[in-house]
Design a protein around this nucleic acid. Structure first.
Length: 905
RNA sequence: GGGCGCGUAGCUCAGCUGGUCAGAGCGCACGGUUCACAUCCGUGAGGUCGGGGGUUCGAGCCCCUCCGCGCCCACCA
């Protein structure tokens, strides 16, 4: 570390990269107890997190910044506790997202993937991945992520691909995977099936179309029907009415004619039909509507598909064949209008299903796909959370989790894409045998034919993501990593992927490894803009974390995200907040600069023994040590209960408004005299700063590491006696986490005594501001201390300095009765303060001020008297009552003194 | 149709198992160029903790209800 004088302002730009490289090169991110190294001890319990793998070709956004900050915080905390800690990084191939990127790039060349073929397409995609795949991991490094990059994984790695295949085959062998035609969500833009979760519904204005289903053989009789998708009329195979609906009884069992096509279909009854809605009669299109599909099954209705994979009308659509679904909708409706079949159309708010990725309207279609029979897996996953093997934080999400798993439908896992894990199934062209295999087969086990064709589809990306916590550790191999680090400890991610990812990992973990994949699920919220709006390009309110880091530093961004969030709740982020925390980083830096320079002034001092040091301990010393001890306990408790934000806030408050604002100011006085006291003070400064840096390190790793290095170098040079209790480890990242101590009696006393000093100082400062006494002007004062006189005498220099009193003209006495003209009187509990301000004093003003204070004191007195006279005194716990009694005594004391003052005015 | 979250100083938000918790940052007002920091220091104004009811000696914190935002799940044509 350079020993050159520290710059006035913390220069994060020159620091962050250097520090990160140093950490990474020194191997600090690797677990301390590595099962692959000699000397491995399996009795240590490790702390492990698997990173939520970002899209391999993605770019950093605030969501990443959030989870990286949060996970790095947990990781650094455990690492500092001396626990073998592993954070496994990696990326996801992100089937649809990546494939869309490549197709977009192709389109710029005027090409489609079909034109270049599967092989070429995959070649290009891999090339793209090689080119851009490192960007996101570099960006994650910038955030300070202390992941073990030597264990980085990618979902399409050979090892993970083997895991995927193993998982598929096992499920198949257990009969939990099947293939067949089902009604699925079809994305016509992407030309693939998508799962229920990948469909998002949006409210959009549309129309409800009313028309006539003419009874077969009748020119006049009809059943009125309403639909939002007229083109599906082409696939209708029934009209349903409610069995008890008198309006349509006469038609039940008869047949109606499909408009334009002329097909005859039955009129049936089904309880599902809502008599109140629309016309009370429902057209049934089993081929293109999930409800209709279910009704069709109940009534054995034929299923007619009328759309092709691009959502154009197919051969079943008669004259509309070849037309786009919306074009066909209009044309059919116009033709029906001409045929006199139209009743009316009215505006209607639709719930439109759209593809999460592509954005286009998803079409329910019959399609042959692969599915996972999910109920058995879901049951186990429910049980794991119910019995506490997996704990979800915040707890309210367990209900959401239960609700989803209890109503789960089979999972469509095949995608008609090219980028992903190919389904390990082959079809024998000779005998039709279906071969599901771990290794690519060369010939048919049944007929021996070599004419095998592999299923063209790939698996849903989330199929491989579900295996992530164990596939990254080597599963299905029993590797040392898998044996030691699995199951992992915490799964930290946004609540928006609870179903997509978290639930599936739990299901898969239990199914394939027989264990829960992690013990704790910590869910954070979404990052929104400063007014709570979703960030989006169209609003133009997107905050780019990279820009923020460039301008304000990584520590500032991390601290803002960590302290600004509570588990499971969304966070509103504004640049103002990051700026405030940039200032905090600078505050840390400057407090550090002060301590470093203080150390230089005490260099070479004789070492003090314990007794000497205890002798020299001032009230301020005792106070800051007491507050620090309390902070350590609070932070530990808050970390244990996952209240990281609150912990950060407390450290911030302690550091800025207690250590920097008060102790450092007093330390200046204690240092000024030199000698043993100065040396003892320096020790305390080192101790408090050192401990604060340790506590802050998981939040703001860069500035703390950098400063700690300087502190250590300077302290070691100054005196061996300055070494702190846990010791100077080789770097802060691996330094020991402060061990909280038991609360001690002296702490309470020190805090109470020092707060009297603070109150006195504040009262005087307050008055100076009120009376416009110029800052810097030293004024005389007399303090009448009563029973606190001794403390005041000891603290005279401190009070004088902080309140800018004239130390030469500061009198401290036990009691005083006479009053001098031109004095202002302040009352702080049992202490009276006389400030001779001469001409600045106005008797009427003084009277008013004292009366106001007396009113306040008396109001408190009567409130407390009432309280203590009531049932409170008997029912509340003794310490609580005692506290209130003391308050009352204090207020009475104050009131008495105020009265006396008023009298003498 | 279910479920959940939020509503605390002008703004953005903290407030652990109910007992100085009525707080922070920003903003605002006033005053400050002394050797850690103007990315700073000191002082101050500002809120019946959404409304109403209840439990309790005591409630932002628990219960009920109402109002206003937001989100998730769900097959209403």
């Amino acid at each position: 570390m350079p020993s050159s004088p520290l710059p006035k302002t913390y220069d994060f730009k020159s620091t962050e990269k250097r520090i990160y490289q140093w950490w990474e090169e020194h191997g600090y991110f690797k677990p301390s107890n590595d099962p692959n190294e000699p000397g491995f001890d399996p009795s240590f319990e490790p702390f492990v997190i698997s990173i939520p793998p970002p899209n391999v070709t993605g770019e950093l956004h605030l969501g990443h910044a959030m989870f990286v900050s949060m996970e790095d915080l947990m990781i650094r905390y455990h690492r500092m506790k001396g626990i073998p800690t592993l954070w496994v990084p990696g990326t996801d191939h992100a089937g649809i997202a990546t494939q869309l990127q490549i197709e977009k790039a192709l389109a710029k060349e005027g090409l489609t993937r079909e034109q270049i073929g599967r092989e070429e397409f995959l070649r290009r995609t891999w090339a793209w991945k090689e080119k851009y795949g490192g960007i996101i991991t570099q960006q994650i490094r910038r955030l300070g992520a202390s992941c073990d990059w030597t264990r980085e994984r990618f979902t399409l790695d050979p090892g993970l691909s083997r895991a995927v295949r193993e998982a598929f085959v096992r499920l198949w062998e257990k009969g939990l995977i099947y293939r067949g035609p089902r009604l699925i969500n079809w994305s016509p833009g992407l030309k693939t099936a998508v799962s229920d979760l990948e469909v998002e519904y949006s409210q959009e204005p549309g129309k409800l179309y009313y028309f006539k289903y003419m009874l077969a053989g009748s020119e006049s009789e009809f059943i009125p029907v309403a639909t939002t998708r007229p083109e599906t009329i082409l696939g209708d195979t029934a009209v349903a009415v409610h069995p008890e609906d008198p309006r349509f009884q006469q038609y039940v069992g008869r047949r109606v004619v499909v408009p334009i096509l002329g097909r005859e279909i039955p009129v049936i009854t089904d309880e599902y039909v809502d008599r109140e809605f629309g016309t009370g009669a429902l057209k049934i299109t089993p081929g293109h509507d999930p409800n209709d599909y279910a009704i069709g099954e109940r009534h054995n209705l034929p299923v007619i598909s009328v759309l092709d994979e691009a959502a154009r009308v197919n051969g079943n659509g008669g004259p509309y064949a070849g037309q786009d679904r919306f074009e066909a909708r209009n044309n059919l409706w116009e033709d029906m209008r001409s045929a006199g079949l139209v009743i009316k159309e009215e505006p209607y708010l639709l719930n439109i299903p759209r593809s999460q990725r592509g954005g286009e309207i998803v079409e329910p279609m019959i399609s042959t796909q692969w599915f996972v029979r999910i109920q058995p897996l879901a049951e186990a996953a429910l049980q794991a959370v119910r019995d506490g093997r997996v704990r979800i934080i915040p707890e309210r999400f367990t209900k959401v989790y239960y609700n989803w798993l209890e109503n789960i439908e089979d999972w469509c896992i095949s995608r008609q894409l090219w980028w992903g894990h190919r389904i390990p199934v082959w079809y024998c062209q000779a005998c039709g045998e279906v071969i599901v295999a771990r290794e690519d087969p060369t010939n048919c086990p049944k007929c021996g034919s070599e004419e095998l064709v592999q299923d063209p589809d790939v698996l849903d990306t989330w199929f491989s993501s579900g295996l992530w916590p164990f596939s990254t550790l080597g599963w299905p191999e029993e590797t040392p990593d898998y044996r030691y680090f699995y199951p992992t400890s915490v799964l930290e991610t946004g609540y928006d992927i609870l179903f997509f990812w978290v639930a599936r990992m739990i299901m898969d973990g239990l199914e394939f490894t027989g264990q829960v994949p992690f013990h704790t699920v910590y869910l954070h919220g979404l990052i929104r803009d400063e007014h709570g709006r979703k960030m989006s390009k169209t609003y133009g309110n997107v905050i780019d974390p990279l820009e923020v880091m460039d301008e304000l530093g990584t520590d500032a961004l991390r601290f803002t995200l960590l302290v600004g969030s509570t588990p499971g709740n969304d966070t509103n982020l504004s640049i103002d907040k990051v700026e405030a925390n940039r200032n905090f980083a600078n505050k840390i830096w400057n407090a550090g600069r002060f301590v470093v320079s203080a150390l230089n002034t005490v260099a070479g001092q004789a070492i003090l023994d314990k007794a000497e040091e205890a002798n020299l301990r001032t009230l301020a010393d005792a106070w800051i040590l007491a507050r620090l001890a309390e902070l350590e306990r609070d932070v530990e408790r808050l970390f244990q209960s996952h209240q990281y934000g609150e912990a950060g806030r407390q450290i911030y408050d302690f550091f800025w408004s207690e250590f920097a604002d008060w102790y450092v100011e007093i330390a200046k006085l204690q240092l000024a005299g030199g000698g043993a006291r100065a040396f003892a003070t320096a020790r305390h400064l080192v101790h408090v700063l050192d401990t604060s840096l340790r506590l802050l390190h998981p939040f703001t790793p860069f500035v703390t590491e950098e400063l700690w290095g300087h502190l250590k170098a300077t302290a070691q040079k100054a005196s061996p006696a300055l070494k702190p209790a846990p010791g100077w480890e080789e770097s802060l990242i691996c330094a020991r986490w402060p061990e909280p101590s038991q609360p001690a009696e002296w702490e309470t006393q020190a805090v109470a005594d020092f707060s009297l000093v603070m109150e006195i100082v504040r009262a005087i400062r307050n008055l100076r501001a009120e009376k416009n006494v110029p800052p810097g002007r030293r004024i005389p004062a007399m303090l009448v201390g009563g029973e606190r006189t001794e403390i005041l005498q000891q603290q005279a220099a401190t009070i004088a300095a902080l309140a800018q009193l004239d130390a030469q003209a500061l009198e401290i006495v036990e009691s005083q009765t006479e009053r001098v003209e031109g004095q202002v009187t302040l009352v702080v509990g049992s202490v009276e303060i006389y400030l001779p301000l001469g001409g600045l004093v106005d008797v009427a003003e003084e009277r008013a001020r004292l009366e106001k204070e007396l009113d306040e004191a008396e109001a408190q007195i009567s409130r407390l008297e009432g309280l203590l006279a009531g049932p409170f005194a008997e029912k509340a716990p003794a310490p609580v009552v005692q506290k209130e009694r003391e308050k009352l005594a204090n207020y009475r004391d104050t009131a008495d003194r105020l009265k006396a003052q008023l009298q003498s005015l």
